[in-house]
Design a protein around this nucleic acid. Structure first.
Length: 498
RNA sequence: GGUCCUGUGGCCGAGUGGCUAGGCUGAGCUCUGCAAAAGCUCCUACUGCGGUUCGAAUCCGCACGGGACCUCCA
């Protein structure tokens, strides 16, 4: 394990040295998507950022249990603890069963995550699969005196909780300030406190997704699922909890309160929050309607896009920025990243072909030191709160040398074999294993067809100049690849060898 | 209104109390049949005004600009 990992803890608003609860093991929970519609690029950024974090923890040799949930129930529209569940609303719209919606968008989400080359979490629990755990937790919170039931709905008593624990700790806010930002309770409200939130919501007759509970038929509130599932799989106190910054004030604040009220302990040691993706300076969000779907981005089929950008170019684009900074989306920025990504990958391919051959030449002491230094800077970058931007900058610095070696501008033998190996493994591991970038050979869908066309043109040209040696060569090589080149009356074409 | 964050070169983006990240773009050079790639060089910034300091873009204050959260959202 290299040096020490530091990470920015939202709870303390400082960069802290990372010390896992159990040496060598890390438990991490990340709030996953609500699968009632397609994930947009902003959602993807969070998951890609945590993929980087997960990958680096693995790289450091930790045994990591990475839990990322799927929210497939109980997520209300609006803040009044009434009205339909998002899934039901969408289901009515699409004339589908709620679980059909869940299935459709869960699969879609997984496809997108795969395109972005993210590693799968260790456990991907669903809210609907953990209803009883949530009910048990709510029961415990009630019996501990932090929640009350009214007409089949259970509310968390924030003001009472706040007398013992700092409710607004995660966003550094006092209860009075929070209260100031909320509306007066109207006569329709049944909850007692303005900040109280629902743990369990009573079902209406038309509610489709409902479960029986001690408080009657209903469904769980949004926040309780994460508390229930994180404690189930990671314990009452675990190492890292992550999510987008937009979840900090409400969802995560409530999660802490629930877990504390239930388990009498603070649930998480390190809270990590990723920043937002913006479009023209404004946050990308579902409600703002400025979200890009990954598919639109890949194909370029969107009014704001000049062209399509490949998944790896987009991943690289995100990696060039630190996860806690906002990232502004523009064609110009994306184009720049696309080029940068290709340079890195070309370098990667080049590097893999480089073979060290010691020569009698004198080694360059300073060069060895410099290369070693650049390698160390990559580790230092990641250890400093997963600063992938620093890593990439230093990879480019290394790339300059890699290209110089490859072009024999600098003789490779001026490096010691140890330094060469270090450069090689550092570059390859950082690009592939940590940043999660891979060579996209054929992200251009028609590339192979186009290459056939080129081949056939060469073939035709060779026939015209009666270069039969070349003609035979092309045909033989194509045949070896399982492709038959045919001269027909209509012209030259090819088919698969039968 | 409340609570915060932020303002870096043509663009995107790191970072730090003094040792000028990096990428993209543009210009030039080397190499080169042409081209590409690659290497080298140049364009060298930190919103404005004060203050602290031997020294600040980096710390503090004020002003202005941008944004987030406080309501569903990664």
């Amino acid at each position: 394990m290299r040096n020490q990992l530091y990470l920015f803890n939202t709870l303390t608003r400082t960069k802290e040295k990372f010390t896992p609860i159990h040496p060598g093991r890390v438990g991490i929970y990340v709030c996953g998507p609500t699968v009632y519609s397609d994930v947009h690029l902003g959602n993807c950024r969070t998951f890609i950022s945590f993929d980087l974090i997960y990958r680096y923890l693995l790289y450091l040799g930790f045994k990591v249990r990475y839990v990322r949930n799927i929210t497939d129930a109980g997520h209300l529209e609006g803040d009044r603890d009434e009205g339909d569940d998002k899934f039901v609303k969408k289901a009515k719209l699409e004339q589908l069963e709620p679980m059909e919606i869940v299935q459709k968008y869960t699969l879609g989400f997984h496809d997108v995550m795969r395109e972005f080359n993210t590693l799968s979490p260790s456990i991907e629990p669903t809210a609907t699969g953990h209803i009883s755990e949530q009910i048990e937790m709510i029961k415990e919170i009630i019996s501990n005196g932090y929640a009350y039931e009214i007409n089949g709905t259970v509310y968390f008593n924030v003001e009472k909780y706040n007398t013992e624990f700092p409710y607004g700790q995660l966003t550094n806010r006092k209860l009075e300030d929070l209260l100031e930002g909320t509306r007066e309770l109207s006569g329709q409200d049944e909850k007692r406190g303005r900040l109280d939130f629902a743990l369990w919501i009573s079902a209406k007759p038309e509610t489709l997704m409902k479960w029986n509970s001690p408080w009657g038929w209903g469904f769980p509130g949004w926040h309780i699922e994460c508390s229930a599932m994180s404690s189930k799989y990671l314990g009452n106190t675990f190492d890292i909890h992550g999510g987008g910054m937009d979840l900090q004030a409400t969802h995560h604040t409530n999660e802490i309160a629930q877990s504390q009220a239930c388990n009498h302990t603070s649930p998480v040691n390190y809270w990590l929050h990723t920043n937002m993706l913006t479009v023209n300076g404004v946050r990308m969000s579902k409600s703002a309607g400025n979200g890009f779907l990954p598919g639109e981005l890949f194909t370029g089929n969107h009014p704001l896009l000049d062209k399509g950008y490949s998944p790896m170019a987009v991943r690289f684009f995100m990696m060039q920025t630190h996860y806690r900074s906002t990232l502004d989306f523009s064609n110009e920025a994306l184009r720049a990243s696309e080029k940068g990504y290709r340079r890195i990958i070309n370098g990667l391919v080049t590097l893999k072909t480089l073979v060290y051959q010691p020569e009698s030449e004198v080694q360059d002491e300073k060069l060895n030191t410099e290369i070693e230094r650049l390698c160390e800077l990559c580790y230092a970058g990641m250890n400093d709160d997963f600063n992938s931007a620093i890593v990439i900058a230093n990879l480019f610095n290394l790339l300059k040398y890699i290209n110089s070696f490859s072009h024999k501008i600098i003789p490779l033998a001026s490096l010691s074999e140890t330094t060469f190996e270090k450069m090689k493994t550092t570059f390859i591991q950082f690009v592939e294993d940590i940043l999660g970038l891979k060579e996209e050979k054929f992200y251009k869908p028609n590339l192979i067809d186009d290459l056939y066309d080129i081949l056939l043109e060469l073939y035709k040209g060779s026939k015209e100049t009666k270069d039969y040696a070349r003609v035979d060569f092309i045909r033989k090589r194509a045949d070896a690849e399982g492709i038959i080149i045919k001269d027909t009356k209509e012209g030259v074409s090819w088919s698969y060898k039968e």
